[in-house]
């Protein structure tokens, strides 16, 4: 009897220590029935991609509030592409200006959520894209 569970990696790339948002989202996804792997702070893009591959997640969620998102998020997207994991749903959030959001979405991010996004919207987005 198959029991598929959506597995999600929530990661904090770079040195930013603000993990309130990441942890709130992680709890909301757990409460929506997903298995959420949280990496903790200060992970490099390489470590994040390696964890995502080993954990075989369908979704990676990145959070950054330090302004380093352009550099670090792009690196994660680049590594995933290089290793052939473009099927992983890639989402992000944090303090990210609209201009950067558009750029990141062009670079392979499926969605960058702006501050104030409800967790139920994030849950729906993931469920639609993974199951749909």
């Amino acid at each position: 009897m198959a029991e598929n569970r959506i597995r999600v990696l929530i990661a904090k790339p770079g040195l930013d220590g603000h993990d309130r948002g990441a942890k709130v989202v992680a709890q909301a996804l757990r409460d929506a029935g997903m298995e959420v792997i949280y990496t903790g702070l200060r992970r490099t893009p390489e470590q994040i991609v390696s964890a995502a591959i080993q954990e075989d997640v369908q979704v990676i969620g990145l959070s950054s509030l330090s302004g380093a998102h352009n550099h670090l998020f792009q690196k994660v997207a680049g590594l995933l592409e290089e290793k052939g994991y473009t099927d992983i749903l890639l989402i992000g959030g944090g303090i990210i200006p609209d201009k950067d959001r558009k750029k990141l979405e062009e670079m392979g991010f499926d969605c960058i959520f702006s501050p104030g996004t409800s967790t139920s919207k994030i849950v729906e987005f993931i469920q639609d894209r993974v199951n749909g």
Binding site: L29, R30, D31, A32, V36, I37, Y38, T39, A51
Partner: peptide, 12 residues
């Protein structure tokens, strides 16, 4: 309750 889980051991 939800069937979900928080897997946080990688933090350590």
């Amino acid at each position: 309750f939800s069937g979900g889980a928080l897997l946080g051991d990688r933090v350590r």
